[in-house]
């Protein structure tokens, strides 16, 4: 009875499958839906965008006309603006995130709540972020101007988002606000991974306060800061909606970013080819930045003798 029961356990057709083949089939089957969906939704657009970037508006033949247009006077200022937003907002984020991470890593009351609140901007929809900044910086009724005027700092109200000199800094601040949570979490996580024995040992060796920060903590955070900077920089570089909602690229093109330019080429000028060329440039800049990060990391690891 027992023996026959046992036989039947082995008797099925798949008993000839080895564990490795079984895992192979199972792995492919389980991964397939996700990968198929992503590839379908990524490869097709990718092929299409490369192809259409090679076709000049109104023509049918393939050529590099759209790319030579990139060298002209419309594209380069936008590239510069996007780079300024990417770099500027990341600089602000790191300047804010490092001290914040250090502060929230201390013994204090309600640390969990503070941590949650710092990461909150991540969850606020861009439309609400934009509404808030528009309202705060409103020329006539915004809080910034009201306080500035009431305290006598300003003699005339400022149009933060309408002034060619002020629009860019304002847009940078908005991007930094939205991007802070990601940068904060990455840096905070790295800080938590710093073994407390290191700090204890440093204290014994006489490193307190600032020297502890300079020789122990910041070197430990270096990789995380680099990672956060590149990730957040790429994200802000390629971000469309916040600029679109705050300034629409104005005033007089001072905040015209690459994503805005692409959008305008597509929906204002109805020039798919040029829009595609701009889109590919955005992607390539991101890839380059990631490659740079990867390269820097490998160099750093080599230097420290890690594999």
């Amino acid at each position: 009875m027992r023996v026959s029961e046992r036989r039947s356990l082995f008797g099925q057709w798949w008993s000839s499958l080895t564990l490795d083949i079984y895992m192979q089939i199972a792995g492919i089957v389980l991964v397939f839906p996700a990968i198929f969906l992503l590839l379908a939704l990524l490869i097709a657009p990718f092929t299409f965008i490369i192809w259409s970037s090679l076709i000049k508006k109104g023509e049918t033949g393939l050529g590099l006309a759209n790319y030579s247009w990139l060298l002209g006077r419309t594209f380069l200022p936008s590239l510069k603006n996007s780079l300024i937003i990417g770099v500027g907002s990341v600089a602000l984020e790191i300047l804010a995130a490092v001290p914040l991470a250090l502060l929230l890593n201390q013994r204090l009351y309600g640390r969990g709540i503070f941590r949650a609140l710092v990461t909150l901007p991540w969850a606020v929809p861009t439309i609400s972020v934009a509404a808030s900044f528009l309202w705060l910086s409103n020329t006539n009724y915004g809080l910034f101007n009201q306080i500035g005027l009431a305290s006598g700092i300003l003699s005339l109200p400022l149009a933060f988002l309408g002034d060619p000199k002020l629009a860019m800094p304002a847009v940078i601040v908005a991007h930094a606000w939205k991007g802070l949570p990601l940068v904060f979490i990455i840096i905070f996580a790295a800080l938590q991974s710093l073994p407390s024995e290191h700090l204890e040992a440093a204290k014994v060796d006489g490193a307190w306060g600032l020297s502890q920060l300079r020789y122990i903590i910041l070197p430990h955070l270096k990789t995380a800061i680099g990672l956060a900077a590149v990730l957040s920089g790429i994200y802000n570089f390629a971000l469309f909606d916040l600029t679109f909602l705050l300034t629409g690229g104005g005033p007089s093109g001072t905040t015209m970013t690459l994503p805005m330019l692409e959008y305008n080429q597509m929906f204002r000028s109805l020039d798919t080819g040029r829009a595609a060329a701009v889109g590919l440039t955005i992607f390539l800049v991101g890839v380059l930045a990631l490659a740079l990060l990867f390269w820097l990391n490998t160099q750093d690891r080599k230097k420290r003798g890690l594999r």
Binding site: L38, F240, A275
Partner: peptide, 18 residues
């Protein structure tokens, strides 16, 4: 790798072809 890369592709680039 496909999973990581697909998260790294900027939305604005996909928007037009999609």
């Amino acid at each position: 790798i496909i999973l990581v890369l697909s998260y790294a592709v900027p939305s604005i680039m996909l928007a037009i072809p999609l």
